[in-house]
């Protein structure tokens, strides 16, 4: 097993609203290994994006990381690092690809110029011409046709899929050790999406980086991840290898999610979709006990009162009272 590169320990991130302090992520612990893709699954509001923003320390002003939380990157605790230290890591060792490529570029400057800016921020010694050559090479690596011409184009001149490739080129420009990908293909068409995933996997193999891949789509994560961690209402509910999650999902939430999505080759005549009742609880009114119990078909008394811990073995963890005995 590869050595770990990022360890999140006991992460709690809270948001201060006018009246409340709302935890978006609660006591989350997970490990990302070198050259691994960790898939993080969950619906909106379950804390996927907040986890990324906490690691990169890009939280909005009303968001705070609780003091007992630790985020260790190669032994350094990022929560304790001064802003200057963070600045030298962001965009270099740790970079991010967002869902919306249009919003990630400045519309007023050519894409190439923006990549050059990132390279020269982290490596001021590199002359502009050489940085531009590197940007062109990156464009070639992400398979944008005619890289030497497209490098001068403005963001609006790219299609959605091509601009997402350019954004990946930007994220890869300083050879990151960890790439955070926040729903990078959700806004794209099916055929374009596969091209982008293939590209990420290929670059991962070529540069030995790790990818922290966030998505709501379990089947997509199953196809590309080594391990998957499922979040629900700010807590990790299940973590195991991607294959195991699809063949032997343990947590009722994971099972329900897999049953609620039409699989390829199923038609309405043949099989009715499983319907998960209710909705994701809003962070200010999370239910006591297991947060999933109001929607869970297997809930019993204990689930309503006591919060389950993580049960099972390191290779397959699950937060559910059903598995307490096996522990």
């Amino acid at each position: 097993m590869n050595p770990s590169i990022l360890q999140i320990e006991n992460l709690t991130t809270e948001f201060q609203t006018v009246t409340h302090r709302t935890p978006a992520v609660e006591r989350l612990s997970l490990t990302l290994r070198e050259n691994e893709i960790l898939g993080v699954a969950g619906e909106s509001g379950c804390g996927k994006s907040v986890t990324i923003l906490s690691v990169l320390r890009l939280l909005p002003p009303n968001g705070t990381i609780r003091r007992e939380s630790k985020i260790l990157y190669q032994g350094i605790d990022l929560t304790q690092l001064p802003e200057k230290g963070m600045n030298s890591l962001r965009g270099k060792d740790l970079s991010i690809v967002f869902q919306e490529p249009m919003g990630s570029f400045n519309p007023l400057f050519p894409v190439g110029k923006q990549i050059v800016e990132v390279i020269r921020t982290h490596e001021p010694a590199v002359p502009v011409k050489q940085a531009l050559e590197r940007a062109t090479e990156l464009f070639r690596q992400v398979r944008i046709p005619h890289p030497e011409l497209r490098i001068q184009d403005y963001p609006f001149q790219f299609s959605g899929g091509m601009l997402q490739r350019a954004l990946i080129a930007l994220a890869l420009s300083c050879s990151p050790r960890i790439l955070f990908a926040d729903e990078p293909t959700t806004a794209l068409d099916a055929s374009t999406q596969i091209g982008i995933l293939d590209l990420l996997l290929e670059r991962k193999e070529a540069t030995r980086m790790s990818i922290f891949f966030v998505s709501h789509d379990l089947s997509l994560l199953g196809a590309i991840s080594d391990r998957i961690c499922v979040l629900y209402a700010g807590r990790m509910v299940e973590a195991c290898s991607a294959k195991e999650l699809h063949t032997h999902p343990l947590h009722p939430y994971t099972q329900d999610l897999l049953a609620a999505v039409p699989r390829k080759g199923t038609f309405k005549k043949e099989k009715r979709l499983y319907s998960i009742q209710g909705k994701v609880p809003d962070p200010q009114h999370r239910p006591p006990g297991c947060t999933y119990h109001p929607r869970c078909s297997k809930a019993f008394d204990r689930c309503r009162n006591e919060e389950p811990g993580l049960f099972g073995e390191e290779s397959h963890l699950v937060r559910c009272w059903l598995y307490a005995d096996a522990h």
């Binding site: 619906e43 709501h216 379990l218 999610l257 609620a260 979709l273 998960i276 009742q277 994701v280």
Partner: peptide
């Protein structure tokens, strides 16, 4: 959200 989609379908 994924868990809501099937309700509507």
């Amino acid at each position: 959200d994924v868990s809501i989609q099937s309700q509507i379908l």
